[in-house]
Design a binder for these strands. Structure first.
Length: 512
RNA sequence: GACUCGGUAGCUCAGCUGGUUAGAGCGCGGGAUUCAUAACCCCGAGGUCGGGAGUUCAAGUCUCCCCCGAGUCACCA
């Protein structure tokens, strides 16, 4: 099955921040999960590089826009690599390929009769790239968001006839499995019900954009351009005119993962554009929440933005991944609290999961000649751990499939806790003192190690590095492309050598 | 202003179509244990489920009113 998923194409006005990292981490976990499930995954991310805001930022820094974009885009590419993001594509909207696709796309929309001229005049905020309808002070209008003076504009732009798609968009937006979470769906529904207006898709006097074919002086409005980037990412060089064969390349997307702020563009404008161009609409949109930091909004003005480039210098990306995916319910807003981060990493990863492996491996080596013990079937065995493991596998799959990352993480953690309890109940360290208990202990240790193996495998999409360390210490090889065989209970081989255990996660200090 | 969603233990939150003594994790206090990364395990404190009224044999769970918070209401990523 094809599974195409996307992050937003991040706007390169500024370097990456933790918000975009969060979106990308979640997308990465989803991509990894679907690969392991045997789907043909195309994981798309990229950057949105056009628009007047970027043009002006570049001017301010006295460099060409193209240079500015190169620098910031490189920053994104690098940071995703550092965070071990497994995107299959990285699309830049300044690429030649993209320009050609946008031209083709526009051609189709124009052929549908959905493009017409419209006059737009009013007070314009460059930072917002939009006309302001309500003015705070008519004598000296300023933008409330950016606190900057508005500029008077009187321009003739190209408009997309969104209003023609009222009923189709209404129908789409009403589908219960299109927009998540549901609270967001309500907002979009209300918006659509209030009546859709046509919107402008070009700007004049903005040189930093893709020229609109056949309309001198017009460049595409950044949104029109950026959304089409999802298609560009799926199209091979030289096939820019083959929008018809997109369904062979992974379109429509299974899910667009986006921030809640850009939901409307994806839920309303984008589907309408696609319908106009004769292309299928995406299957699902997931608008996740925003991250605060220690209870405060993150923002440049507050100077409390977490820089992923700095964060990754201090911590293994898995630690952040675990914290963000486990502690924040995807879709809701979250709060990055350092103390909580440290507590979770130490408790969940180092103590509960890490120490489980460590203590069991240690016992196994000590009493079974540095090896994994041989399990001998015992009919009286209830094999509670096997049952719990199998249940956990089902839970994790179901949760991950539905982007409920925190539930998946909790299920795995619960399994580790159960295994720890099992150890405490069976007390192998006491039983081993009586030689007649040898096989009993062998079985118990084996069951725990096997459970640890299952945990290691299940952890792959969420914390891939930690997963690797667990599996390496257990000495197991796994199929990196499909986890279904490896998730069979009982594959751990008794009698195989165990390396000396070392902590898979080093605890971190509160003071750092 | 209109609409949407929230307000449950110190903190972050679960609680589906109403039904035994309201739950989890973290934090805190105590105990037990030694295989282990001073880890693991057990026990405990404790909350009039935002406030009020109502429906019902029975409401955190439904209805109404009020208070507080967040969000959306057209082209900011």
């Amino acid at each position: 099955m094809d599974y195409t998923l996307t992050t937003p194409l991040y706007y390169v006005n500024d370097k990456p921040h933790l918000g975009s990292t969060y979106t990308t981490i979640a997308s990465d976990a989803l991509a990894r999960f679907n690969r392991l499930e045997g789907n043909n995954v195309i994981f798309i991310t990229g950057v949105d590089e056009h628009g007047q805001k970027i043009q002006r930022t570049a001017e301010k820094n006295k460099i060409k826009p193209a240079v500015h974009c190169d620098v910031i885009s490189k920053n994104y590419i690098d940071v995703w690599e550092k965070w071990q993001i497994t995107n299959d594509r990285f699309i830049r909207t300044t690429s030649d390929k993209h320009r050609k696709v946008v031209e083709q796309f526009f051609q189709r929309v124009e052929n549908s009769g959905d493009i017409e001229f419209g006059r737009q005049k009013g007070w314009y905020c460059v930072d917002c790239e939009e006309f302001k309808e309500e003015l705070d002070d008519p004598n000296s209008p300023t933008c409330e968001i950016h606190k900057k003076k508005l500029e008077w504009r009187d321009e003739e732009n190209l408009f997309f006839k969104l209003s023609r798609y009222q009923s189709q968009i209404e129908e789409l937006v009403n589908k219960p499995d299109f927009i998540f979470p549901t609270t967001r769906r309500n907002e979009v529904k209300r918006f659509v019900e209030s009546g859709l207006h046509d919107f402008s898709i070009s700007r004049v006097n903005v040189s930093w954009g893709i020229p609109v074919p056949g309309h001198k002086g017009h460049t595409f409005y950044v949104w029109f351009d950026a959304l089409v980037g999802y298609l560009t990412a799926l199209i091979d060089e030289g096939s820019e005119d083959k929008l018809d064969t997109l369904n062979m390349s992974g379109w429509p997307a299974s899910v667009h993962i986006i921030g809640k702020d850009i939901l409307r563009f994806h839920a309303v404008y984008w589907p309408a554009m696609l319908i106009s161009a004769g292309l299928p609409t995406p299957m699902k949109l997931y608008g996740h929440g925003f991250l605060k930091r220690e209870g405060q909004k993150m923002g440049k003005s507050l100077g409390n933005v977490l820089d992923p480039n700095e964060l990754i210098k201090q911590y293994d990306s898995d630690l952040i991944r675990w914290y963000l995916l486990k502690d924040i319910r995807f879709g809701q807003d979250g709060d990055f609290q350092h103390k909580r981060f440290v507590d979770l990493v130490n408790n969940d990863l180092a103590n509960t999961i890490g120490n489980l492996l460590n203590r069991t491996s240690s016992m196994s080596r000590k009493w079974f000649d540095n090896c994994i013990p041989q399990y001998k079937v015992n009919d009286d065995e209830s094999n509670y751990l096997k049952e719990h493991s199998l249940m956990t596998i089902l839970e994790v799959k179901e949760s991950m499939k539905n982007l409920r990352f925190s539930e998946a993480a909790e299920s795995i953690l619960k399994l580790a806790t159960t295994a720890n309890i099992y150890l405490n109940d069976t007390e192998p360290w006491s039983r081993i003192k009586d030689p007649t208990n040898y096989q009993l202990v062998a079985n118990d240790i084996y069951l725990i190690l096997e459970t640890a193996r299952i945990i290691g495998i299940l952890l792959q999409p969420i914390v891939p590095n930690i997963s690797n360390r667990i599996l390496t210490q257990l000495g197991v090889q796994i199929d990196r492309d499909n986890w279904n065989v490896d998730l069979t209970w009982g594959l751990l081989e008794g009698g195989k050598n165990l390396v000396e255990p070392s902590p898979i996660v080093q605890k971190i200090d509160h003071n750092l």
